[in-house]
Measured scan of single mutants.
Amino acid sequence: GKELVLALYDYQEKSPREVTMKKGDILTLLNSTNKDWWKVEVNDRQGFVPAAYVKKLDP
């Protein structure tokens, strides 16, 4: 199944490769191989958020 992450903080995108999220958002995790930036999908948009700003949810 899909892996989900919880947004721990608000994040405002600073480049087109990033996405904005609000604290409490549930996002689909697409790629977590980079320790600093994780690729997520939110509202049909894909992009990166700081890994420290999200937490993996237990399945």
Rank of each mutant, 00 (worst) to 15 (best):
G1E: 15
G1R: 10
G1N: 15
K2L: 05
K2M: 15
K2Y: 07
E3Q: 07
E3V: 10
L4K: 13
L4R: 10
L4H: 10
L4D: 05
L4A: 08
V5A: 15
V5P: 01
V5W: 05
L6S: 09
L6R: 11
L6T: 11
L6M: 13
L6Q: 14
L6C: 15
L6V: 14
L6H: 12
A7S: 08
A7G: 04
L8D: 05
L8Y: 03
Y9D: 15
Y9V: 15
D10K: 02
D10T: 05
Y11A: 01
Y11V: 01
Y11Q: 02
Y11H: 05
Y11S: 01
Y11I: 01
E13D: 05
E13Y: 04
K14Y: 03
S15I: 05
S15K: 13
S15E: 11
S15R: 11
P16G: 09
R17M: 15
R17C: 08
R17I: 08
R17Q: 13
E18K: 04
E18R: 03
E18V: 03
V19T: 09
V19N: 03
V19M: 08
T20C: 06
T20Y: 03
T20D: 03
T20N: 12
M21G: 01
M21I: 12
K22I: 11
K22V: 13
K22C: 14
K22P: 00
K23H: 08
K23A: 10
K23V: 15
G24R: 02
G24E: 01
G24F: 03
D25N: 08
I26L: 14
I26V: 15
L27P: 03
T28K: 11
T28Q: 14
T28C: 11
T28R: 13
L29Q: 01
L29H: 02
L29W: 00
L29F: 03
N31V: 08
S32P: 09
S32R: 10
S32C: 11
S32E: 11
S32A: 12
S32H: 13
T33F: 06
T33K: 12
T33P: 04
N34P: 07
D36W: 08
D36K: 11
D36Q: 12
W37I: 08
W37L: 05
W38G: 01
W38I: 05
W38L: 06
K39C: 13
K39D: 06
V40K: 01
V40W: 00
V42H: 14
V42S: 11
V42I: 12
V42R: 13
D44I: 03
R45H: 09
Q46A: 15
F48V: 14
F48T: 03
F48E: 07
F48M: 12
V49D: 03
P50E: 01
P50W: 00
P50V: 00
P50H: 00
P50L: 00
P50I: 00
A51D: 01
A51I: 02
A52F: 14
A52S: 14
A52W: 07
Y53K: 14
Y53T: 12
V54G: 01
V54K: 00
V54A: 04
V54F: 04
K55I: 04
K55M: 06
K55C: 05
K55R: 14
K55N: 05
K56A: 10
L57H: 15
L57F: 10
L57D: 04
L57P: 05
L57V: 11
D58F: 09
D58T: 12
D58V: 09
D58P: 13
P59R: 12
P59V: 10
P59Q: 15
P59N: 03
P59L: 05
P59G: 12
P59M: 03
